[in-house]
Lab assay of single mutants.
Amino acid sequence: MSHKQIYYSDKYDDEEFEYRHVMLPKDIAKLVPKTHLMSESEWRNLGVQQSQGWVHYMIHEPEPHILLFRRPLPKKPKK
């Protein structure tokens, strides 16, 4: 599979999560399941490479070739 064609967005966040999206080329996108969110082993098997802790959290129906990921931000110590 062509890992060079996978595009990784910059990371962005809110108060709770860090987010990123990953755009897959058409040949890989056709392998994305339409019935469920992928486990880490499933998206890694497609060639997506990112650190541990990312969760495929949403399917964007109009653009199924874009995978939406998030992971919890580290808890800030209370002052």
Rank of each mutant, 00 (worst) to 15 (best):
35 T>F: 08
38 M>T: 03
63 E>Y: 07
57 Y>L: 03
59 I>G: 04
54 W>S: 03
25 P>H: 06
50 Q>A: 05
16 E>D: 15
68 L>V: 07
45 N>G: 13
74 P>N: 11
37 L>T: 08
59 I>T: 10
38 M>K: 03
75 K>R: 10
70 R>E: 03
20 R>F: 02
37 L>A: 03
7 Y>A: 11
68 L>Q: 05
16 E>P: 03
61 E>V: 08
20 R>D: 02
22 V>P: 00
71 R>N: 00
62 P>H: 15
21 H>N: 15
23 M>Q: 10
55 V>N: 07
6 I>C: 06
54 W>I: 00
20 R>M: 13
76 K>H: 10
25 P>G: 09
54 W>V: 01
71 R>C: 02
78 K>E: 13
36 H>E: 06
10 D>I: 10
13 D>L: 10
21 H>Y: 14
65 H>V: 04
58 M>P: 03
69 F>G: 02
62 P>S: 15
51 S>T: 08
38 M>F: 03
51 S>A: 11
53 G>Y: 05
10 D>F: 00
41 S>F: 13
63 E>W: 07
65 H>N: 12
62 P>A: 15
78 K>V: 13
15 E>W: 15
61 E>S: 10
52 Q>K: 14
3 H>I: 15
37 L>V: 05
57 Y>E: 04
43 W>A: 02
8 Y>L: 01
59 I>P: 06
57 Y>S: 03
54 W>E: 02
68 L>G: 04
4 K>P: 14
29 A>G: 08
27 D>E: 10
38 M>P: 05
15 E>Y: 13
78 K>D: 13
33 P>L: 02
69 F>L: 03
72 P>S: 08
43 W>T: 04
17 F>T: 00
1 M>E: 14
1 M>R: 11
37 L>Q: 00
28 I>F: 07
35 T>H: 13
12 Y>D: 08
44 R>S: 06
17 F>C: 02
74 P>W: 09
31 L>T: 05
49 Q>E: 14
36 H>G: 08
72 P>N: 11
78 K>S: 13
2 S>P: 13
49 Q>A: 08
16 E>H: 14
34 K>I: 06
56 H>F: 01
34 K>T: 13
69 F>T: 03
19 Y>I: 00
58 M>K: 15
63 E>I: 06
27 D>Q: 11
34 K>V: 06
19 Y>V: 00
56 H>P: 00
59 I>F: 13
72 P>C: 05
45 N>W: 07
34 K>L: 10
74 P>G: 11
46 L>N: 00
72 P>K: 11
66 I>S: 03
30 K>F: 10
39 S>L: 06
62 P>L: 13
11 K>I: 14
47 G>Y: 06
42 E>T: 06
78 K>L: 12
7 Y>G: 09
21 H>R: 15
20 R>V: 04
17 F>Y: 15
69 F>C: 01
28 I>G: 03
40 E>M: 03
29 A>K: 06
70 R>K: 09
61 E>R: 11
10 D>V: 08
38 M>W: 02
